[in-house]
Design a protein around this nucleic acid. Structure first.
Lengths: 355, 355
DNA sequence: CTGTTAGCGCATTCAA
DNA sequence: TTGAATGCGCTAACAG
């Protein structure tokens, strides 16, 4: 090993093989391990003489030093990892939320570990365990809670021990007692939508309602129905068809609905991807949207904003919701909080006035 | 502390406060640390007597033991983390790839750390560094490479030292010499599309071409033009408008194109999200898709498959591409490989026959 | 301000 | 088989 090389000119990838540790850097710089640590990390207060500091930094660069985050985590007793659990990252709703979470986490100096459950509560539990093993500083869970008491019980149990160990938790979507949550105003959004559509002349209505046990789906559906009922419009029970919270679920539910007696003039799908599936089913039946059947959704997913006919829906600031979850999960906790986010009706061509 | 409690009956969250370490488990089980480690991990060969093994597992469960992945990583000298770098997780193209990566990584027992660059090469480099600090076992980078030699040079440098340190790398999209890559057949896909559209009667064509320096965009555009040229149709240079690889980029490019002289009968956008933006611009200009302007895209993103008019495009198996990248990044390397994936034309209503 | 030292939690030698 | 001892790479007291 030459004295110290020629300063900084060239010299990428000097080390070549093998790991480069901080003590090698220290040695190369001719200082102690501790000083090297302080110089490179610079945490708390920078209490390292400038020239030494520079020597260390130089040495680090020369050796292509890369601090071992795992070792740091051990020594510090804490990580910069945030776990994000979603049901399906290919779903535009979740990918928008994920985008928000990742941006905000990045700004907070955190790295995001992403897990997808495919709507399986068991996998959700498994991922929480994995993230706990990772010693993730916080876990953010996005996606509808379930109506199943046993499942929720188990979930809260697992999260409780995670929190006991110092982990933080935030939810996006449906609140769970005792946990901080970003909660979209599904009820008001749906009710507003119902009133707006009623105002456009719709009276003969069907609902693609999502799974029975899906809390968000229920909230939206119930609020929509209730608002309509207040206006004197009843949605017959056989026109409320459950289905998966997916494109295929919407397609299937709509197909079922079309097989029933008569066809509703308007169909409200409890989310946009279901609405898309529904529109497809309508067309396959040889009917026109919105000429024969008007369709409305919920979420206002981005990709759909430009298609024709534009889909009437209730807009949720999904990216922002993701962003909001991060401080909820990271900032010092003064008890669980709920952060409400508004939902606003967006009328487009899929539900023209039919007065 | 009671003797050992009543076996397993109740007792969740026994520990209460503080971390639970393996040695605590060992103590609780009355065995040595080493035995506890062997029992719980069971790696290599299970050389632990059954009764001891059971005692350890019991103790672990009683104490809600959660192995510290960071400590394991240190001791083992390797992690189960795979880093995934995409440009924008809210973009359906990338979220589909991410879905594939996450699924396959999960099956391989790996956790995925996701980073987004927002198309900034500098952030790409930063994230590679971060992932290297994390000692990610592999890094998968999805998204178009850039034409900038300096940037690519730097990127390859950084990846080279990452690999020197034992990391694995795989790309999805554009190959970079020396690195394993999943490569969609952009050229054939575009050429096939060009021929198909020519066959439908289109002669007067414009192209929304993506950024100049974007390799994928260039490949698609060039192949499309060439195929058309072979059929005797030239696309005038002023009808090839560059734009960002995004919805807004497509919208802007289309707007520019519409401001030019005459309006092409067909516009090919080099990806679907640009095509969506373009359709919007067409409509804003008071024109009809496909009546006045036919539109074709590339990728076949899921959410668009059900809208009307259906978008003619070239389908890429994006989820599968993500899946394929994982073995490329994880399996033992016998030199860099390229995994080609086919692209197939999908004709829909956005480009009707106009013979 | 700098250097020495002691762990962080675990896997794995090496002996027994 | 099991246990005792070592070290992974780093931070954070603790002394100089």
């Amino acid at each position: 090993m030459a004295e110290q090389g020629a300063g900084r000119p060239a010299a990428p990838r000097a080390g070549g093989r093998g790991r480069v540790t901080l003590s090698q850097v220290a040695q190369e710089a001719g200082v102690s391990l501790a000083t090297a640590s302080r110089a490179i990390n610079g945490s708390s207060e920078r209490r390292v003489r400038e020239d030494l500091r520079e020597r260390v930094l130089d040495a680090a660069q020369r050796l292509d030093y890369s601090p071992d985050a795992n070792a740091q985590a051990m020594a510090r007793g804490r990580t910069d990892t945030v776990g994000l659990i979603v049901q399906d990252i290919a779903d535009p709703y979740f990918s928008a939320i994920a985008a928000g979470v990742i941006n905000a986490a990045d700004e907070a100096g955190c790295v995001v570990t992403l897990a997808t459950t495919h709507r399986d509560p068991v996998r959700e539990l498994e991922f929480i365990a994995t993230l706990q093993n990772q010693r993730a500083r916080a876990i953010i869970i996005a996606g509808g809670r379930v109506e199943d008491a046993a499942v929720n019980e188990r979930l809260r149990d697992v999260l409780a021990t995670y929190q006991d160990r110092g982990g933080r938790v935030a939810l996006v979507g449906q609140p769970l007692p005792g946990l901080s949550t970003v909660v979209p105003d599904n009820a008001h959004g749906s009710a507003d939508l119902a009133r707006a559509l009623h105002g456009l002349g719709y009276r003969d209505v069907g609902i693609l309602a999502g799974p029975d046990w899906h809390t968000t789906a229920r909230d939206r559906q119930a609020a929509f129905r209730d608002a309509l009922a207040e206006l004197g419009v009843e949605v017959p029970a056989d026109r409320v068809v459950p289905g998966d919270f997916t494109r295929d679920g919407g397609h299937a539910a709509m197909t079922t609905l079309l097989r029933g007696e008569g066809t509703p003039r308007l169909v409200f799908a409890v989310n946009d991807v279901m609405a898309v599936g529904a529109m497809s089913a309508v067309r396959e039946a040889g009917l026109d949207v919105p000429g024969d059947v008007a369709v409305a959704g919920f979420d206002d997913i981005t990709t759909l904003r430009d298609v024709a006919p534009g889909l009437t829906t209730v807009a949720l600031p999904m990216v922002e919701m993701g962003r909001l979850a991060v401080p909820l999960a990271l900032d010092p906790a003064d008890g669980p909080r709920e952060v409400p986010v508004g939902a606003s009706v967006v009328l487009r061509e899929s539900t023209p006035r039919i007065d």
